[in-house]
Nucleic acid binder design. Structure first.
Lengths: 346, 346
DNA sequence: CTGTTAGCGCTTTCAC
DNA sequence: GTGAAAGCGCTAACAG
């Protein structure tokens, strides 16, 4: 009598036991044949492979995770999905983790430390083998959670040495937002500008650090005027950049240079200038931040700061993988730097 | 003698059993107190909550998933992380799933059906409660896998009725790429253009359908010239748009209108025109596709097609949730349409 | 309302 | 090289 496929599982899927029966071996041998082929005889391996294919066997990673206490997932917390900055980081993470069999699992925090804490808490329930967070500004409870983890944690986009609080000797991968802002400020000063303004939105800690750096550079040059700072909490966009520039110009017609904390704002500013016939850089110099896709293609091409977003993702994942594998002797903090891209708007 | 926290778990974390002991109840009661509070006495609930908090208990979703056969995850397969089109869809999915406790788990397919099949296979191992895919162009083996699933599947960005192959009465959410392309073609014709060209990159099935629609419109008007089609496999970018337009203009100086299958290409084309002093729309009309962030802010503002990417994500997730909850009586195919955004480049 | 029993599907450990 | 037993941490199903 022909053997029927015995689908024992509740889910209707074949289990290892099913494959075992079909192959005439024990479940344990199936497990070995699939995971450590070298630990099993050539012949058995073939039989198991055949049975496995015939039954359309898909091993349950859930069960494996429970048994081994390794989920093969990595929790990745980012502030927003619609900000391409974090998507670039995520892409780097995913490309690096994936070949090693690890699955990034995304959590979106909406730029709010409390939400980050909540999301982290729920994600920890699925027992990730590692955690990658954005920034170092977490709630005390979040730090507690992280401290209690048996798995490694990497913080991105910032560096421990630039952080005011206690970072517990955390693993960090990023660059100095402060230095980057400072570089822009100095560049504008060196171009001979005297009335240098600042427009910023989405005031997360990293944006603030950039602004701090810029301010410091102006103070050093004796050129800082607080009235020329326009900082709003709204999320950045092309439209917002145009609008804020209009506002600033109305109040300070003598403005001759401007740092906008993100390229989309800068693009909006350039658009406003084009419409109003304001010469760039003749009358107004404009600098952005991040070197997003279109920055080299604005008219005129935008001076901005290129940030190593993708590389940060790659490096964060590498550090995490190393830590997961017990390599604790690597660097604890990786500074990937930034590059001031001087183009034609300054 | 003071009771020590008995951390029985291998992972060093407290288990339900630990909490149970600490609260003086059974593990089952802890489970109920946490998941169905109404099924438990006020007093016990409080005791469990207290013990749970004191031990820093984080329930293992893995174990729960294994026991209930519900992982509370949804596999989401997209071609690319760096194409904002899919990120917008993803954001819609994530926002909709998240409040219901479902975790989207992303897989990246690189626009390759074979890779999609591979990624899907590995993801199925973690027993998702649903699957959301991009497009309807899957390998036969992928269709087999999907058919065999006990969980619902939703296909996005396309509509079953527009698909050439057999779709198994699949759930689909999207819009007609063909009609959208057709609308652009007709619009250009109606603007009185005679030498209407096409530039396309990233030739996935959806791009091809858009091109087909455009071509159809020109054929209908008796204006189609195959020589004016420039289709390349490269992924789209601003730089590519500029380059391809230059090439096309060299070969066909009489070109008077152009459809570019993605806004970044169109932006590059506009840039090239600005640099070469080609009047838009005077000498050359330009239309893009997708209405990405900057499209309204190019100079002049770009005519393009607004696609409901976010809404597609939201609706796909809704349909999936309904199906997971056994509501099979809703629509099987949702057409979210598109809007031709006529601005100043045509 | 609460507890007991059994088991999800896999892997660890130890025999053989 | 292979198998049997036990258990990962939770919950379904039943009993009380």
């Amino acid at each position: 009598m022909p053997t029927r496929k015995p689908r024992s599982s509740r889910t209707g899927r074949a289990t290892m036991a099913d494959v075992a029966t079909a192959a005439g071996v024990s479940a344990m041998t199936v497990s070995r044949a699939l995971n450590r082929p070298d630990k099993v005889s050539e012949e058995v391996r073939a039989r198991v492979a055949e049975a496995s294919r015939r039954l359309g066997f898909v091993p349950s990673r859930l069960a494996a995770a429970l048994a081994t206490a390794r989920s093969m997932t990595v929790t990745v917390l980012i502030p927003s999905l619609t900000n391409s900055v974090f998507i670039d980081v995520l892409a780097g993470i995913q490309e690096t983790l994936s070949p090693h069999g690890y699955q990034p699992v995304i959590g979106v925090t909406g730029y709010a430390p409390e939400e980050e804490e909540r999301v982290l808490r729920t994600q920890l329930a699925s027992g990730p083998d590692g955690v990658i967070l954005t920034g170092l500004d977490h709630t005390p409870a979040t730090w507690d959670l992280l401290r209690g983890l048996p798995t490694p944690v990497v913080h991105t986009m910032d560096l421990a040495r630039n952080f005011a609080g206690d970072t517990d000797d955390a693993l960090t991968v990023g660059f100095s937002q402060f230095d980057a802002g400072h570089a822009v400020g100095r560049h504008l000063v060196e171009r001979g500008r005297r009335r240098i303004g600042l427009i910023a939105g989405q005031l997360d800690p990293r944006t603030r650090q950039r602004c701090d750096g810029w301010r410091q550079a102006l103070v050093e040059a004796g050129l800082h005027d607080p009235a020329l700072e326009l900082m709003v909490p709204d999320s950045t966009s092309v439209a917002l950049g145009a609008e804020l520039l209009e506002r600033m110009l109305a109040a300070h017609p003598d403005l001759d240079a401007l740092f906008l904390c993100n390229d989309d704002l800068a693009q909006g500013a350039l658009f406003h200038c084009a419409r109003r016939g304001i010469a760039v850089p003749g009358r107004l110099a404009v600098a952005g931040f991040n070197d997003l896709g279109g920055a080299a293609w604005t008219i005129p091409p935008l001076t901005t700061v290129a940030t190593p977003r993708h590389a940060i993702g790659v490096e964060a994942a590498r550090l995490l993988l190393a830590a997961i594998n017990g390599n604790d002797n690597g660097p604890r903090s990786v500074d990937l730097g930034f590059r001031l891209m001087v183009r034609e708007t300054t």
